[in-house]
Simulated assay, not measured.
Amino acid sequence: MGIDHRLSLIVHAGAGWVLWVLIGLSIVAVAIILERAISLMASRDDVRTMKEDLLAYLSNGDPAGAIERLETSSSVEARVLIAGLGCAEKGAAAAEERMASTSQLAKLSMEKNLSFLATVGSNAPFLGLLGTVIGIIRAFQPLDAAHGQVSSRLMAEVGEALLATALGLLVALPAVAFYNFFQRIIGSRLARADALGREVLAYMKAER
């Protein structure tokens, strides 16, 4: 089967299949957005209160109490601090490496499936444009059959072609917006975890 024949089959199929692909991508994107939103909301905590409690335990020389307090939280910040305090006896350098490792693993966990949103956001408009191109090419057939006169079939083909571009944009915009929103949340949490981790390192160095 030659390339010309394959292209003719794609054009003959029309832009309808492009619309269904975009609808499928939008459904998957919405599912990922909801899953990530629920996951990030479930793992948030009052970082200011956590910091006050942490400093209170450390100032009293009670790292075990600090760990018990942190274990009541499901936040990323708490997991990073627990990793550092858990190896306090090995020194500040070991604790710093352990917290850095935990922070990277937490970042990968929070970014789960976000690459799909980025891919949809960057490629959905081009997929919609492909549907528009196919629809316009198909529109030439009824235009030729009607000897250049506008017909209802021609308008239907053009309308479907333009709908593909619009749908591609509608799918891409929320995907990009939520991708950036989630990345901002993840970055903020990792930055807070790093700041609290430095409090732990300062305590360890002072104890040494």
Rank of each mutant, 00 (worst) to 15 (best):
L19T: 08
L22Q: 10
L22A: 09
I23V: 15
I23G: 04
G24I: 07
G24S: 11
S26I: 09
S26K: 10
I27W: 13
I27P: 00
V28R: 02
V28W: 12
V28L: 14
V28P: 03
A29F: 08
V30E: 01
A31S: 12
I32D: 09
L34A: 13
R36P: 09
S39C: 07
L40G: 07
A42G: 07
S43C: 11
R44F: 04
R44A: 15
D45S: 15
D46P: 08
D46T: 09
V47A: 14
V47K: 11
V47T: 15
T49G: 15
M50F: 04
K51N: 11
K51M: 06
E52L: 14
E52M: 13
E52T: 13
D53V: 13
L54M: 12
L55D: 06
L55E: 14
Y57K: 09
Y57P: 00
G61R: 13
G61T: 06
G61A: 03
D62R: 14
D62T: 02
A64D: 15
G65E: 04
G65I: 04
A66R: 05
I67K: 02
E68I: 07
R69T: 08
R69Y: 10
L70H: 01
E71H: 04
E71T: 02
T72I: 00
T72D: 02
S73Y: 03
S73W: 02
S74D: 11
S74I: 00
S75N: 09
S75Y: 09
S75E: 08
V76L: 15
V76I: 13
V76E: 07
A78V: 07
V80S: 01
V80L: 02
I82S: 02
I82F: 01
G84E: 01
L85F: 05
A88W: 05
A88N: 01
A88M: 08
A88L: 11
E89G: 03
K90W: 03
A92L: 00
A92D: 11
A92R: 11
A94Y: 00
A94G: 00
A94P: 00
E97Y: 00
E97I: 07
M99G: 06
T102E: 14
T102N: 04
S103R: 14
Q104D: 06
Q104M: 12
L105H: 12
L105S: 07
L105M: 12
L105T: 10
K107V: 08
L108H: 12
S109G: 10
M110E: 12
M110A: 14
E111T: 08
L114G: 09
L114C: 08
L117H: 11
L117G: 12
A118W: 07
A118Q: 12
N123Y: 06
A124S: 12
P125E: 07
F126R: 03
F126V: 07
L127K: 01
L127F: 10
L129G: 04
L129D: 05
L129S: 09
G131S: 05
I134E: 06
I134R: 09
I134D: 05
G135D: 05
I136P: 03
I137D: 05
I137Y: 10
R138Y: 00
A139S: 15
F140Q: 03
P142K: 08
P142C: 09
P142Q: 03
L143T: 02
L143Q: 04
L143G: 02
L143E: 03
D144G: 14
A145M: 10
A145N: 10
A146M: 02
H147R: 13
